[in-house]
Amino acid sequence: MNKIVEKEHFSERVVKIVVEAPLIAKSRKPGNFVIVRVGEQGERIPLTIAGADIQKGTISLVVQKMGVSTTKLCDLEVGDCITDLVGPLGQPTEIHQVGTVLACGGGVGVAPLLPIVEAYKKAGNRVVTILAARSKELVILEDEVRKWSDEVIVMTDDGSYGKKGLITEGMEEVIRREKVDECVTIGPAIMMKFCALTTKKHAIPTVASLNAIMVDGTGMCGACRVTVGGKTRFTCVDGPEFDAHKIDFDEMMARLAGYKPEEQEKMEHFLQQ
């Protein structure tokens, strides 16, 4: 069950794995995520599905080494099994034909963005995608994104690839030159916050896909709560996508950092072993 059949290193800390999960491959939709657990002492962590192959019965996940759980997952090799894998979870992305869609992906957020870009394109939209990363080696899935985008703009913080600058600069450039009907953003919380501020100025409807801390992923625990438009919502069952203009990103960032000291302790304990 859940055997890893392919593994690719995108960078030192970012790995793509392809896992056997025939039922999830069949039932997943863009925007859905899974919960994985590695080892009998493992933690349950959510990961957005980056793609699926129904014929082969596999799904792909892109993981960035951050703490103990993601390190354990990244350290698995082809032939190893993921102890537990469950999904698909969350509400799928609502895809319509709207005209021009601006898709903004940052860091590993490009992985979950890919199936959404594909779906928008297939629904008959013009899709302009902006990929943002700190530097060249952290730009991932560029070729795959190009396949489903009318145009791809790469932005790097250090200018080592594409244009030098922040994602919002690329967004402003697109918005200046053409009418954008909808925007979708996936990446670090701080990036999504500024993407949302940018599109709000221009009144462009925007959704952000959130990566919250979760335990069960089915609405049971409420660890993933987020304030949207003044109301508490659960990222796992109400999301993971919400109206980016209404999300309280500051609260969300504080909640994401809620276990920092504990996570550090776990990491030290893990490295000692």
């Binding site: 933690e43 335990v215 625990c221 409420g222 660890a223 776990k266």
Partner: peptide
């Protein structure tokens, strides 16, 4: 932070074993 539902609090400890140092769940 620090405010849990009882479901979350109990699940972290009972199901995920967060009371044990060897558990990855905090």
């Amino acid at each position: 932070n620090g405010i849990f539902s009882s479901n979350e609090y109990l699940t972290r400890v009972n199901l995920m074993g967060a009371d044990n140092v060897d558990s990855d769940t905090p």
